[in-house]
Structure formats: C-alpha cells, structure tokens
Amino acid sequence: MSSKKIKNKEIRAASLLEKKSTRRNFLKGLSIAAAAGSAALTTGCIPAADAASTEELKLRWQEFFKKNYRLMTQEEKDATVARLERLSKLNANLDVQMGSYPPLDGVLYGYAFNITRCEGFMECVTACVKENNLDRKTNTQYIRIFEMEPGQLDPSTGDGQYYHEVPVDNKFYMGTQCFHCEKAPCTKACPTKATWKEPDGIVVVDYDWCIGCRYCQAACPYYGRRFNWGKPEIPKEEVTRRQHYLGNRIRPMGKMEKCTFCIQRTRKGRLPACVEACPTGARVFGNLLDPESEIRYVLKHKKVFRMKEELGTDPKFWYFID
C-alpha cells in the first residue's frame, strides 16, 4: 500500500476522533458497526475498510431483516424497492427503475406454443436472457428449444443442444419454460413460502426470502427453475434497467429464479420478451379470462395439448398444431 493511501486513512481516522461525540452519535456508531459486521457476514467475506460506505451497510442491514414480500404493506414494498435501487447505484453505479406493481384485475395469464410454426431460431432465448438479466457467465436460460424427430411429442426425446442452421428438413421444434402450473408442485415444496402463485397466475420467487435449499427445483417436473450457483454476471451496458421486485431484478447469489412471464412487462400490458421476439409468430400470450383474447381463440379453435398432463399440475402453457 502506498504511503499516500496510509496517510489519507490516518487523516480520516483523526477527523473521526475529533468529531464531537454525543450519545446519539455513539448509538449511531454502534449501529453502523453492527451493520458492518452483518454486512461482512451477508457478503460472506470481510469487506475492505473503505470498500463499503456506511450508507450501503445501513441499507444492507435493513434489507437483511425485511419481511417476505407477501407480508409487506405497500409502504414497505416501496421502501425495499427504493433501498434496492440505491444499492444498485452504490454497488454497480447502475440506475435502475424497480417496481412492485400488483397484478391487474380480472387477468389470468396463459401461454400457447405453435409447434407447426416454430423453426428453432432461438430469438426468444436471446430476448429472454437480455430482458431478464440472466447470468451470462453460466449461460442461464429459462427457455429451452428442442429439435424433435417426427413422430415424437415429448421434448425429452429431442435434441436440446443443437448448433447448426435451422430449420432442418423433417424436424420440428418445441420450446419449454416454466409452465406456471395452477397446481404447482414447486410452491407446495418450498419450506419458507418464498415461492407462490400470484392472483394473475404467475408463479414467482421472492429472491430475498428464498434460502436456496433447491427443493422446488427437485419438485419441478418441467425443469422450469434455475439456481444462482454463483454471483450472476451481466455486462453493465446490457443490464435491463426497468425491473420488477418479483421479476428481472438482478438475483443475489444462492437463490432460485425462474420465468415470470416477464412480470415487469406483462403487468404493464405489454407482451413477454419471448413473444415479442419470435419471428415466426409461434408464441401466443394473453389473458385467459378475456373471451376475445388470442389465447382463448387458440384454445377454442386449435387442437391443443399440455406436457406431462398425467401429473395433474395443470400448466397454463399449451402446445398446438396448425
């Protein structure tokens, strides 16, 4: 360490000592020290003395003791969102706009996938990765596309890792993702109620309440969940800054995540990123409660089927053939 740095530190320490100490200041100092200690724990390492500002430590301390999202009042939701925005600014110098907007009234989301139209371009996968701030280091993907042989309808018989020009003659393509089951085995398994089905049918995870036991991942019959084995890495310029608390905010290490039907978009009346990105129009998304919606049209007029129907999970994701 250079002598200049040491000198700077000495000056800072001296100025701290010179400050007039009152009882209030003392208590404040105490809480900051406690916050520093807990922050050291929560990050799993001892931060360098000048790495974290006292403001950041205070915010992390408050974040550590917050409630499960479903038990928060709207004020508490606003407060945690403000803290997370501020922390993002302090940690990564990122200005994000995070929301905690509730489900829309009279809406139940459903999804349909046209296996006749899909040609396996994987534009949906790219759009999803970008929109949902998925970890680039381990190449996390919510959507999987399988290249299928004729005569098969079960993705587990297909090739999920093709690297060649598509479409290939005499093959077809099937996409999978979280199917947002009405009777979701994952939410039943969670020991802390950190994952649940929202009133609009979206199965979400409270990333900060999750303890990372991965029981939900074992319980999911569709491989719909992804775990943050390490700290997610996203190039700063590629981060989607319009975020939702239950959606695409950057996940902490050691927590579960999954497709949220792009909750940050759909709750504002927009389409999920995958639907918007699909060049062939194979993806249909909409409100199951609206008789005029496209998804209702598909369910009424097309021959549809669902994956692993025998498990009784009642997915809100249908495949159909033109």
């Binding site: 969670c190 802390t192 950190a194 303890i211 050691g254």
Partner: peptide
C-alpha cells in the same frame, strides 16, 4: 447445502414463515 445460509432464520416459526404442513 443452503444457498443462503444466513437466511436460514426464515424457516423459524414466528420470526420467519414455516410452510407447514404443506412442505
């Protein structure tokens, strides 16, 4: 084995949420 061992207190009834008897 927990990804968030410091959140293990979320399991403790009263201060956390215990998903009993479902889980």
């Amino acid at each position: 084995d927990l990804g968030g061992p410091l959140q293990a207190w979320h399991l403790i009834p009263v201060i956390g949420i215990f998903n009993f008897p479902s889980s």
